[in-house]
Amino acid sequence: MNYFLHIIVLLNIYIILILGANMTVGMAGLLTLCQAAFYGIGAYIGTMLLMQFDLPFIVIALIVSVITGVFSLLISYASLKLKNDYFTLATLGFQMIIFTILYNWVDVTKGPYGISGIPAIKILGLWSLKGVVPYAIFTAVVMCAMVGIFVALKKSPYGRLLRAIRADETAVKALGRNTSAAKTRAFFLSAAFSGIAGLLYASYVRFIDPTSFTLNESLFIICALFIGGVGNAKGSIAGALFVVILPELLRFIGLPDAVAAPLREIIYGLALVVIMFVRPQGMLGEEMSK
């Protein structure tokens, strides 16, 4: 039972992460490869706040959102100056730089040794979440709230503006819209989503080190997003289900870990290639073309 709940917690965290990626990749049509960097920033900032201050979750989540959001301004700046591949490459660079800092700035992040003994989340300053049951419930609540925010944004005129930018940014500018500001906000939201996922992860696992926030993790998130589908919430949920459940299924079949781990990755890779052929927008995604 606890094992099952553990999977639920991971699933909730991944849904939030993938929704974050979906904000930029799916809604605004900008391919970023640095989601894990924001995830990591959220986890480390969240850890420091949890360890230093006795604050309720909502306050910490807000601070984490704002700080990761501020980091996203670097990506926004890149998106103003660079297009397509160059922009994606810059986000890859950002990912590498953040990882290097997390790994090397030992005084603050303890580098490769990681930080352990991270305190649990407190709700309303009263209850400390202990054990997997409350975490499963709590992360589910946060996940639902995030899905709600995503859907509301998608349906709002802001969502429409992002879709318009995805189709033809030049035309949108000529129609009097500040597209840079709109994109900056999308990056900010995307980073904030990832940051909150990082905070949940850190306080649940109670130990973090930089290896959870690598370029591979970013690629993994993008894989999950594209397998599930871009542009809407159900695609992100499907993507998270796929990548979280598949390894468990393989374990269920009884494959040894040395085989199951690479096999799982090969299946992800194959799924990704096949989906690019059959439905480039992902299983449940929305048509990306003009």
């Binding site: 005129p157 802001y158 429409r160 503006l161 879709r163 819209r177 990306m288």
Partner: peptide
């Protein structure tokens, strides 16, 4: 036109009225 938007959405994108085009506004 922006092909992934409906005709009505295309018309709306050309309006000077940008109410709701900030992410905070739906909330």
């Amino acid at each position: 036109l922006m092909g992934n938007l409906t005709l009505m959405e295309n018309m709306k994108m050309a309006s000077v009225d940008t109410m709701g085009e900030h992410p905070i506004s739906p909330f």
